[in-house]
Nucleic acid binder design. Structure first.
Lengths: 123, 123
DNA sequence: CTGTATCCCCTCAGATACTG
DNA sequence: CAGTATCTGAGGGGATACAG
């Protein structure tokens, strides 16, 4: 499996390439939430308690640029923006499910204990 | 899906937990190579042309500490050390296959071109 | 409401040198 | 052959302030 270049970066294998597209702390959580319904910026923000304003904004921009979500702006005041998952984005969902299932099993094996769910607002 | 703590770090979901165990540039490539045969340190080194001495060493240590590989030292001169995948490590293989397949598809869609395979030694 | 711009820290990963 | 230690750089991600 020879190396290859994308966006000026050298990759060694397809896994590395994939994880650069959908990895990081927030991309999968966002796609996961968009899997069944379009959401507004503020809805996503509310649904991802720990994400910062800056991260949500920049990650959405990346996901849009690489075709995993689309962005629809309503010219109203105050602004309204909806994010929708694309076909390409939908193809990430089963990948997330596999990793998620594996992670859940690992957690059990490692005896991970939850912190006692801060449900609504936290931080 | 409430948050939880492991090893003093706060996680938001199982995916994040999983990727902290098997993510990064080198963990999956190493497990992938060990999937069918045990390998010596130097064999792994040879098979992963871009990895540095330090990274191979430290990543193997982490994989061992979390039960994905075992390490067998032969008390000979010069030293001989063999790494073998564990049952837990084997359960990572299908996860890698899924990500790998997805990454390969993405690469095609993105029109990624290979750099003209430096095959054996490089760098 | 949605979004950008700064500043800053911390961790991953590479380069290099040294050891049993 | 296998492994550790030190230094360094790049970038992901957080806090905060400002703007249309």
């Amino acid at each position: 499996m020879p190396d290859f270049i994308y966006d000026k970066k050298l990759y060694y294998n397809p896994v590395e390439f994939a994880m650069d597209r959908i990895g990081g702390t927030w991309k999968m959580p966002i796609l996961w939430r968009l899997r069944e319904k379009k959401m507004r910026y503020s809805e996503l923000k509310r649904d991802l308690p720990h994400i910062t304003h800056k991260m949500l904004s920049s990650v959405l921009r990346e996901l849009e640029a690489e075709g995993f979500v689309t962005r629809k702006v309503y010219p109203v005041v105050p602004p309204k923006v909806e994010y929708t998952i694309t076909r390409r984005g939908e193809r990430v969902i089963p990948v997330i499910e596999v990793i998620r299932k594996f992670g859940t099993e690992l957690m059990r094996e490692f005896g991970v204990k939850e912190t006692g769910g801060t449900r609504g607002q936290q931080k």
